[in-house]
Amino acid sequence: MHSVIAIHAAADRNAVPLDTITLDHDERRVRRKLLRGANGTEILLDLPQATTLDHGQWLELDTGGLVQIIAAPELLYEIRARDTAHLIRLAWHIGNRHTPAQLDEHRILIKRDHVLKTMLEGLGANVTNATEPFFAEHGAYHSHNHADGGHALLARP
């Protein structure tokens, strides 16, 4: 089993990965976890605090190899509104229910939940099925690895 010694932003590397690890939104939130790559590489990730791994990031292994993180497609609802003010109101209702949401300029994505779909349609939203990677916003007190320029470097053993 390999250990992760550093995490690098996607732009930091232009290499062929030893392996890839595909994770959904919730699985990309990690602190200590055993991961298995598509090619069978076993990796122990042991971070000082919980971190969200981003699509395209590279995990540098104790052997010098690199493993790339891939965001898995998920079953989502795409929410569209009549105009910007309507989209803001819809976002407020979603947030009021503490539902993770990806906020884009002209749409909101949430995980599929028929109760929320019914509520949003009742508020005049156009809600359709989507299947794509999910990148929900993080709360104000949520630790994220961009605080240091996109690198969550670990102490080398």
Rank of each mutant, 00 (worst) to 15 (best):
A81F: 04
Q68H: 03
Y77N: 11
A140I: 15
A71G: 02
A130Q: 12
E74P: 01
V127L: 10
N39F: 12
A101E: 13
R156I: 14
A101G: 13
A125K: 02
W58P: 01
R31D: 01
G139N: 14
L123N: 11
L18E: 09
R13W: 15
V4I: 08
L154E: 03
R29N: 01
A38T: 15
L76F: 08
H106D: 08
R36S: 05
A38K: 10
I70D: 05
V127N: 12
N145Q: 14
F134Q: 05
Q49L: 07
Q57Y: 04
G139I: 10
D19W: 08
A91S: 13
H25V: 00
N129P: 03
L59D: 00
D26W: 14
A15K: 10
G122V: 12
L66D: 02
T20M: 10
A101Y: 11
R107C: 14
L23N: 00
T131E: 06
L116W: 03
H114Q: 05
L23W: 02
I79S: 02
I110R: 01
H86W: 10
A155N: 15
P48N: 12
M119H: 03
F135A: 06
A130T: 07
L53Y: 00
E105M: 12
I21Y: 09
T63Y: 06
T118K: 10
E132C: 05
R80L: 05
E121Y: 09
Q49C: 13
I70F: 04
R156M: 15
A101R: 07
T99P: 12
E74I: 00
A9I: 02
M119L: 13
R36E: 06
A81T: 13
A130W: 02
P100G: 09
L47N: 09
D148I: 07
T99I: 08
K33Q: 13
D54F: 03
